[in-house]
Simulated assay, not measured.
Amino acid sequence: MSADVKGLDVTIMGREFRVACPEDEQQALLDSVTFLDKKMREIRDAGKVIGVERIAIMAALNIAHEFLGTRLAGSFDIGEYKRRMNSMQAQIEQAMADQDELF
């Protein structure tokens, strides 16, 4: 099942970007834009980093560090979590299909 990919205009630190995104993932992209914009503004407002490109790099490093720290420290891997949830969903659906055959 493929979704139509459309261009979505987003604004980060006052700069506009057009990003290709499947329609069914647009809200997640907008949430990501909001998160990144907030991180970049926090770095800018701290006054220690000057220049949008440097602020973007620092934000990317901070986000990557937070992500990896959460994944490694807590032994939590979102990809593995999603795979396990999909596997459980498939098992439930199979059990339900088997149940329907009994009646």
Rank of each mutant, 00 (worst) to 15 (best):
residue 96 M to Q: 12
residue 78 I to C: 09
residue 47 G to T: 14
residue 95 A to I: 03
residue 78 I to L: 13
residue 87 S to I: 04
residue 60 A to E: 11
residue 22 P to V: 00
residue 26 Q to E: 12
residue 30 L to P: 15
residue 67 F to S: 11
residue 43 I to L: 01
residue 99 Q to P: 04
residue 67 F to R: 06
residue 88 M to H: 02
residue 72 L to W: 08
residue 11 T to D: 07
residue 5 V to K: 08
residue 76 F to Q: 12
residue 42 E to V: 06
residue 78 I to E: 12
residue 55 I to W: 10
residue 50 I to G: 01
residue 36 L to Y: 05
residue 2 S to K: 14
residue 31 D to G: 13
residue 60 A to Y: 14
residue 97 A to L: 11
residue 71 R to K: 08
residue 51 G to V: 07
residue 101 E to A: 02
residue 32 S to W: 15
residue 82 K to L: 15
residue 25 E to K: 15
residue 7 G to W: 00
residue 76 F to W: 09
residue 15 R to W: 13
residue 82 K to D: 15
residue 9 D to F: 00
residue 6 K to H: 00
residue 103 F to D: 06
residue 90 A to P: 10
residue 26 Q to D: 02
residue 83 R to S: 15
residue 8 L to M: 10
residue 97 A to K: 07
residue 37 D to Q: 01
residue 66 E to R: 07
residue 55 I to M: 06
residue 60 A to R: 06
residue 54 R to P: 09
residue 8 L to Q: 09
residue 64 A to W: 13
residue 4 D to T: 12
residue 92 I to G: 10
residue 32 S to N: 13
residue 48 K to C: 01
residue 21 C to V: 08
residue 82 K to H: 10
residue 101 E to Y: 02
residue 101 E to R: 02
residue 24 D to A: 01
residue 94 Q to V: 00
residue 39 K to T: 03
residue 3 A to T: 05
residue 76 F to V: 07
residue 14 G to F: 05
residue 84 R to S: 15
residue 56 A to E: 14
residue 89 Q to M: 08
residue 88 M to L: 05
residue 16 E to Q: 10
residue 57 I to C: 10
residue 3 A to N: 09
residue 24 D to I: 02
residue 76 F to R: 04
residue 54 R to Q: 14
residue 1 M to T: 02
residue 61 L to C: 12
residue 74 G to C: 06
residue 73 A to Y: 12
residue 102 L to D: 13
residue 100 D to E: 11
residue 41 R to P: 03
residue 70 T to D: 12
residue 47 G to Q: 11
residue 82 K to F: 14
residue 45 D to S: 07
residue 67 F to C: 06
residue 64 A to D: 06
residue 46 A to T: 11
residue 30 L to W: 03
residue 14 G to L: 07
residue 45 D to Q: 05
residue 12 I to C: 03
